[in-house]
Amino acid sequence: MKLREIAHARTGDKGDITNIAVIAYRAEDWALLEAALTEEAVGDFLGAGAGKVRRYALPQLHALNFVIGDALTGGVTRSLALDAHGKCRGASLLDMQVQVDPTAR
Rank of each mutant, 00 (worst) to 15 (best):
K2R: 15
K2W: 08
R4Y: 13
R4T: 10
R4M: 12
E5M: 09
I6M: 08
I6Q: 01
A7S: 01
H8K: 13
H8T: 14
A9F: 03
R10A: 10
R10V: 03
T11P: 04
G12M: 05
G12P: 03
D13L: 00
D13S: 07
K14Y: 07
N19L: 05
N19C: 07
I20P: 10
A21V: 01
A21S: 11
I23G: 01
A24C: 06
Y25K: 13
R26D: 15
R26I: 04
R26C: 00
A27S: 13
E28I: 13
D29S: 01
A31M: 14
E34C: 02
A35Q: 11
E39Y: 06
A41D: 00
V42C: 05
G43N: 00
G43L: 01
D44A: 14
D44L: 13
F45M: 11
F45R: 02
F45I: 07
L46E: 06
G47V: 09
A50E: 15
A50T: 12
A50Q: 12
A50W: 09
G51L: 11
G51Q: 11
K52Q: 14
K52G: 05
R54A: 08
Y56K: 11
Y56R: 13
A57Y: 05
A57D: 00
P59A: 13
P59N: 09
Q60W: 03
Q60G: 15
L61Y: 11
A63R: 02
L64A: 02
L64M: 05
N65F: 04
I68D: 04
G69L: 06
D70R: 11
D70L: 12
L72Y: 08
T73Y: 15
T77H: 06
R78M: 15
S79V: 06
S79T: 01
S79Q: 09
L80D: 15
L80V: 13
A81Y: 03
L82T: 15
L82N: 14
L82H: 14
D83S: 11
D83K: 12
H85M: 08
H85R: 15
H85E: 12
R89K: 12
G90E: 04
A91F: 03
L93R: 02
L94H: 07
M96Y: 08
M96P: 05
M96L: 05
Q97Y: 13
Q99N: 12
Q99C: 09
Q99W: 12
Q99D: 13
V100P: 05
V100K: 11
V100H: 00
P102I: 04
T103S: 12
T103H: 05
A104W: 03
R105K: 13
